[in-house]
Write a protein that binds this DNA or RNA. Structure first.
Lengths: 205, 205
DNA sequence: GTAATAAACAACAGGTTGTTCATTATTATA
DNA sequence: TATAATAATGAACAACCTGTTGTTTATTAC
């Protein structure tokens, strides 16, 4: 991935910077943070920060990229089984196992994810995450999960609907303290997605 | 609502400030804006800005409050007809007329709405808007649209799902240039909400 | 042990902030 | 229309953050 140059000082510095970033986002929100805040909390010199990152946005993007890479890996691991499930008659189970993997990952990285997806987090990350989700579901590849010729609404709105809805459920889970297990969250999310919110609200027979 | 003290100078100043704000959000994003940017574009003295608003966030909140007030009015106007429709057998039509009103309003105020809901907009507004939507659907009132005893998933996740999904569709519409009519958007949104995205994607018989 | 290099320290100009004050211009109203 | 009220201007202020640079000190890899 990046340079394999693990000078211990660099590792320590970057770790304390990223730890401080999460703390500060939860405390005062991304936009209120100054580079000085970060370096004070990380107990490093301000000049050292600039030796590693251009500014706080550069730091954010680097952190977020790591998350996206992980998510790509999870997606690729789950891809074959989901495709297989979709081709059988147990369609409803197809997204379930994938959703479990997703929530398990979020659970492990909940510190950063809660901060960055929370109400004081990074709006641009949500935009990129939506884009990533849509490409996962409906990418360039010929055997994508979704095929536009079957859509009942324009693809862009289907994408926006699904992407934001999924992120919304994730946000709520992180925000309310992750009381449900990843399995339970996967059940909730697939129920909402497969049957729709109208049904899940008890408004439909 | 606010003071009835319409000194023409105040009206002019506030209007040019708010106009400049929308321009600048679209141009460089809320967080990159300085008070100096706003006053330069609005062609007013920087001191004058501080005579009206504490800072740029105070300005944002005041603008956003006006939007929320309008939305409340629209909701109240549509309430009786939606309740009536829900009690007949034409349940699917219930949210439709309300959605049309909503998109018509967004269409009129698209300048500000696009800026504030866009990728360079205000995350905290989205949070408040979700909260508002949920209270509208499932408020304190006894005859709310939704009743928790019927829910198949926890109410907080249903709320998060619906709220963010609706906002997502609105964002996509504003972002892509509002090519569809409010009626068409209402059809898309109600189709997605009533039948669910899985169905709308053609994945369900 | 030594050379390489990361981090600390200190100082810099340039920019924004929020406030204050005296001065000028506009508005409401009598 | 004259005048009193008040909004806006212009200028100055200290305080703060930024991004950069050069020097010194400490840690690390080999």
């Amino acid at each position: 991935m990046r340079n394999i140059n693990p000078d211990l000082r660099v590792i320590r510095t970057k770790e304390s910077i990223r730890h401080a970033l999460v703390e500060l986002i939860n405390e005062k929100g991304l936009e209120a943070i100054t580079v000085k805040d970060i370096t004070t909390m990380a107990k490093i010199n301000r000049g050292t920060f600039y030796a590693h990152y251009q500014d706080k946005y550069d730091l954010m993007i680097k952190c977020e990229e790591d998350i996206m890479i992980d998510m790509s890996k999870i997606t690729k691991q789950n891809y074959p089984s989901v495709i297989a499930a979709l081709e059988t008659d147990s369609q409803n189970l197809a997204p379930f196992s994938f959703a479990v993997s997703l929530f398990e990952y979020l659970n492990i990285n909940s510190g950063f994810m809660k901060a960055v997806l929370g109400p004081k987090g990074d709006l641009s990350f949500q935009t990129r995450l939506k884009q990533f989700m849509w490409e996962t579901l409906y990418g360039n590849n010929p055997n994508a999960f979704l095929k536009e010729e079957n859509f009942l609404v324009p693809g862009q709105y289907l994408a926006a609907y699904m992407g934001t809805a999924i992120i919304g459920v994730i946000q709520q889970w992180l925000e309310s303290g992750r009381k449900e297990s990843p399995q339970e969250m996967a059940r909730i999310l697939t129920n909402l997605t497969v049957n729709g919110p109208y049904f899940a609200a008890g408004l439909k027979k």
